[in-house]
């Protein structure tokens, strides 16, 4: 196995709001190899997008990376200036934001936005920019790409906007892509088309990919490894087989139970009782304790990591038997 080319170590990203400190990401560590897909799943609001935006250096006030290291090919990203990071973005790492409007300017035609993404980094002719745009738009399954280049974002459907954002991320052939819910608004046919194309980049060019999603079925088929997050912290990380096939963590198990296809149609879906705790008032113990059937007194103490196997690591005092 190759060495990781990308590492996150002990990342903490907090928002210092008037109401208090929102600890969105707490002590997250993981790595990524070339040609590998790491899936991130977890409760809504658990810090998945903030993790991605931290890597991209796009955390705005009053948020800040409080501690931790993020390195790509030995380069420490948290040490880069804003200008240096800007040159990294797009060319070395690209992010497909969950909200297409983070990337798309509503007042600009798709063509101008895509050209701008290229010309910021490379000096190429209009002809070449045009051809490259058409190529990536085709790859993500946009019909009539020539005409669509003329469109404004609001003239496209939600799924088309999402595809334009994916296409833009592919434009410069980055080493690594962080895709945040990239295919949630897409039907399975188009999803398959996009994943097929990205899979080729992964296998042929050694693209490293972080795929943030709640779509466990896509992930189960695409990811090499999966990280499960809850309330800003990692609950479990391992190979896809470790997580989907033999999860040992109470939260992961509950999550898998809630999938509609594992429930009886028309009846109530199994849901996890209660809600995620407010990130403003986290205790030092396991954040899942208030909703966990296996919780005992010790769960209110900080939870250490347990290495279950070479690939499988878990944060829980009472994991299920293997």
């Amino acid at each position: 196995m190759t060495e990781p080319f990308f590492q996150v170590d002990g990342l903490n990203t907090w928002f210092f709001t008037r109401q208090g400190v929102i600890k969105s990401v707490r002590d997250i560590s993981f790595d990524l190899r070339r040609g590998e897909v790491l899936g991130i799943v977890g409760e809504s609001g658990s810090g998945k997008s903030v993790t991605g935006m931290s890597i991209m250096g796009q955390i705005d006030e009053p948020g800040r990376i409080v501690s931790g290291s993020i390195s790509l090919d030995g380069q420490e990203l948290t040490a880069l200036t804003f200008e240096e990071m800007r040159r990294y973005r797009g060319r070395k790492i690209a992010m497909v934001f969950q909200n297409p409007l983070m990337t798309l300017n509503p007042l600009m035609r798709v063509r101008d936005q895509m050209y701008e993404a290229i010309s910021e980094h490379e000096d190429v002719s209009h002809r070449e920019m045009h051809d490259r745009c058409i190529e990536v738009l085709k790859a993500v399954g946009i019909p009539s790409p020539e005409e669509r280049l003329n469109a404004y974002p609001h003239e496209m459907s939600g799924g088309m906007r999402q595809r334009v954002v994916i296409a833009t991320a592919l434009l410069l052939g980055p080493d690594m892509i962080i895709a945040d819910e990239p295919t949630t608004a897409l039907d399975v046919t188009i999803q398959a088309q996009i994943i097929y194309h990205i899979r080729r980049q992964i296998d042929e060019r050694g693209l490293g990919m972080i795929w943030i999603t709640h779509d466990l079925s896509t992930l189960s088929e695409l990811a090499d490894r999966i990280m499960v997050m809850y309330a800003g912290a990692t609950m479990e990380i391992g190979t896809t087989e470790d997580i989907i096939g033999s999860s040992r963590h109470p939260y992961t198990r509950k999550l898998l139970d809630s999938v509609p296809s594992r429930n009886t149609p028309g009846e109530k879906l199994r849901q996890i009782p209660g809600n995620m705790p407010s990130l403003l008032s986290l205790e030092k113990g396991c954040p899942f304790a208030s909703r966990c059937e296996r919780a005992t007194e010790i769960c209110s103490e900080p939870v250490p990591a347990t290495q279950l196997s070479a690939t499988h690591r878990i944060w829980c005092y009472h994991p299920f038997e293997g």
Partner: peptide
């Protein structure tokens, strides 16, 4: 319109149960 698309399956279940 894709109202539960961005939700993890457990919160999605909560919303769907609520709607039902």
């Amino acid at each position: 319109d894709e109202a539960v698309a961005a939700l993890d399956v457990s919160v999605q279940a909560q919303i769907i149960n609520l709607l039902m």
